[in-house]
Nucleic acid binder design. Sequence first.
DNA 1: CTAGAGGGTCACGTTAGCGTGAGGGTCAAT
DNA 2: ATTGACCCTCACGCTAACGTGACCCTCTAG
Lengths: 112, 112
Amino acid sequence: MLIGELSERTGVSRRALRYYEEQGLLVPERACNGYRVYSGDAPLIVAQIQGLYAAGLDSDAIRQYLPCARGRTPDLEMCAELRTHLSGRAAELGTQAETLIRQREAILAHLS
Amino acid sequence: MLIGELSERTGVSRRALRYYEEQGLLVPERACNGYRVYSGDAPLIVAQIQGLYAAGLDSDAIRQYLPCARGRTPDLEMCAELRTHLSGRAAELGTQAETLIRQREAILAHLS
DNA sequence: CTAGAGGGTCACGTTAGCGTGAGGGTCAAT
DNA sequence: ATTGACCCTCACGCTAACGTGACCCTCTAG
């Protein structure tokens, strides 16, 4: 499929899809006229990318993570390292949430 | 105290402290020579600001939140609104963490 | 053959939270 | 009076993930 169709099907802008290619996250084939041609599993990959961005990962982390998540490159060491990475990031988010909850409790105290 | 001392005591750069003033988060008095003069509770406020930045809030949210957190402006409506804001943000962080944990589980599945 | 829909590559604009000089007063001490 | 430690105000630089034209090509339909 071409970039317009992928954009419509995923809700991700054409600009963003080109950006993903720039970052090496989702690199499509090229037709003889230079048009980007995406394979059938592209929408799934785009969804994964969006989820990871939304979770606060940056392009570098996602680039390293994606091939492993797709079952490619069964490099056990890399996958283990990435699991550690994700666990650490999740822990960070947990402490951030705790900070906010504490502040909320502080306000509750002020209100009494 | 002057900006240098506050910077040392908090570990926050002078540039950042001037930025906080720009954003209306921590506005010091001025000596006759134009030097910024911070009050005794400034280090505590700086710590709060840092915590909220670290938790992912932006300057606007912190500006609205700080007076309430310090016990100033006992505006009950505003405080309630801010509690809602913080709860929402904490929930967002929770879902982000869940996303990462799911991805980690997906990798675990690949490894088997 | 001409119009329109869609595709391509630059390349600058945006937001946030500072970093990093440039150029220049202020203050205490020697 | 000169040094050195601080202070001030611009004001440009940086990173990230795109938005938004500008300008040109390609394909299909009437």
